[in-house]
Each structure stands twice: as structure tokens, then as C-alpha cells.
Simulated scan of single mutants.
Amino acid sequence: MSNILHLAIPAGDLKKTMVFYTDVLGCKIGNGEEGRWQDINFWGNELTLHQSEEALPSVRHDVDMGAVLVPHFGIHLEQDDFDALKDRIAAAGLDYIDEPYRRFKGDKYEQETFFISDPNNNVLEIKTMKNPEVLWPEG
């Protein structure tokens, strides 16, 4: 095991939030403490959801596609996995914060991205890169 990101966030109602991460996003359950916190496998990274009363504050920052919510976290997916996740979001009847949008068209960094929130209003950005190899070039 190496270079795994760990992130812990307030989850609000832990049971409700777990349904979002497991049923909609397809994440697997890891270690946990009933009613207090739960680790999930967030595409190879450890996301710890904490039962909480609070939610993270957020503000919008201007980028090329408009004003995006910060803080946010997310994942880069292969196109097929990205499309399958959009299908699961639609099947669950969830709304996007920011609809799927293609950024940097015709550029080496071309990508499709969308923003969605979990039940505690933690903001996630999910994206797929047309050329994922350009993200972290060798050297």
C-alpha cells in the first residue's frame, strides 16, 4: 500500500450518507465504528465519513466554466466509468450542482467534469480526461 490519500469529512446522518457513497457512487465499505465513522474505498483512497451535526462551509471561486464551490474533492475516472456514474446519478434522481461540462475543448487538458453534493452537502467534482497522461507528465 503506497501513496493513498486519506480524507475525513463530516457526513451528517452517517447512514443516509453511506447510501449515497455505496449505492450511487459504488464505493466499498472498509473499517468503521458504528454510528461514529465509516471508512470507504474512494477509488483506491481512504475517505472517512464522520457522523456530525455540522457541514463544511463553502464559497464559489471563478474558473473558466463559471463559479465553482470550494472546498471540493473528487476523482478522475476513465470515460466508461464516468458515463456509468452519470447513469447511476440519473437513476437515483439526484441533481447536479453543476451539470456535466466539457472544459478546455481541443486542448491537451480537455476534460468533462461535473459537481454533485453528498447528503451533507460535501461537494464532489468528478471528471474524465480526454488525455489522462498529460495530467502528470514524466520528468
Rank of each mutant, 00 (worst) to 15 (best):
His50Asp: 06
His50Ile: 14
Gln51Lys: 02
Gln51Ser: 04
Gln51Arg: 06
Ser52Met: 02
Ser52Gly: 04
Glu53Gln: 02
Glu54Ala: 05
Glu54Pro: 06
Ala55Val: 08
Leu56Pro: 07
Leu56Gly: 14
Pro57Met: 07
Ser58Val: 02
Val59Met: 10
Arg60Ile: 13
His61Gln: 11
His61Glu: 09
His61Pro: 01
Asp62Met: 14
Asp64Pro: 15
Asp64Trp: 10
Asp64Cys: 14
Met65Val: 04
Met65Glu: 12
Gly66Arg: 06
Val68Ala: 02
Val68His: 07
Leu69Thr: 05
Val70Asn: 06
Val70Glu: 03
Pro71Lys: 07
Pro71Trp: 11
His72Ser: 13
His72Lys: 05
His72Gly: 06
Phe73Glu: 10
Phe73Gln: 05
Phe73Ala: 05
Gly74Leu: 05
Gly74Glu: 01
Ile75Pro: 01
Glu78Gly: 06
Gln79His: 11
Asp80Trp: 00
Asp80Val: 03
Asp81His: 14
Asp81Met: 04
Asp83Phe: 08
Leu85Asp: 13
Lys86Asn: 06
Asp87Tyr: 10
Arg88Asp: 00
Ile89His: 11
Ile89Thr: 03
Ile89Asn: 03
Ala90Met: 10
Ala92Leu: 08
Ala92Glu: 02
Ala92Ser: 12
Gly93His: 01
Gly93Tyr: 13
Gly93Trp: 08
Gly93Ile: 12
Leu94His: 03
Leu94Ser: 10
Leu94Arg: 04
Leu94Asp: 00
Tyr96Gly: 07
Tyr96Asp: 04
Ile97Met: 02
Ile97Thr: 00
Asp98Ile: 08
Asp98Thr: 15
Pro100Gly: 11
Tyr101Gln: 12
Arg102Cys: 10
Arg102Leu: 15
Arg103Leu: 02
Arg103Phe: 06
Lys105Tyr: 14
Lys105Thr: 14
Gly106Ser: 07
Gly106Glu: 07
Gly106Asp: 11
Asp107Ile: 12
Asp107Asn: 11
Lys108Val: 15
Lys108Gly: 11
Tyr109Ala: 11
Tyr109Phe: 02
Glu110Asp: 09
Glu110Val: 01
Glu110Ala: 06
Glu112Ser: 15
Glu112Gln: 09
Glu112Thr: 11
Thr113Val: 13
Thr113His: 10
Phe114Trp: 08
Phe114Tyr: 02
Phe115Ile: 00
Ile116His: 00
Asp118Gln: 10
Asn120Phe: 03
Asn120Cys: 07
Asn120Met: 13
Asn121Trp: 08
Asn122Met: 04
Asn122Val: 12
Val123Ala: 11
Leu124Gly: 00
Leu124Ala: 01
Glu125His: 01
Ile126Trp: 09
Ile126Gln: 03
Thr128Gly: 04
Met129Gly: 03
Lys130Arg: 14
Lys130Gln: 15
Asn131Arg: 08
Asn131Ile: 15
Asn131Tyr: 13
Pro132Asp: 09
Pro132Ser: 03
Pro132Val: 03
Glu133Gly: 07
Val134Asp: 04
Val134Gln: 04
Val134Trp: 01
Leu135Val: 06
Leu135Arg: 03
Trp136Pro: 03
Glu138Phe: 15
Glu138Tyr: 03
Glu138Ile: 12
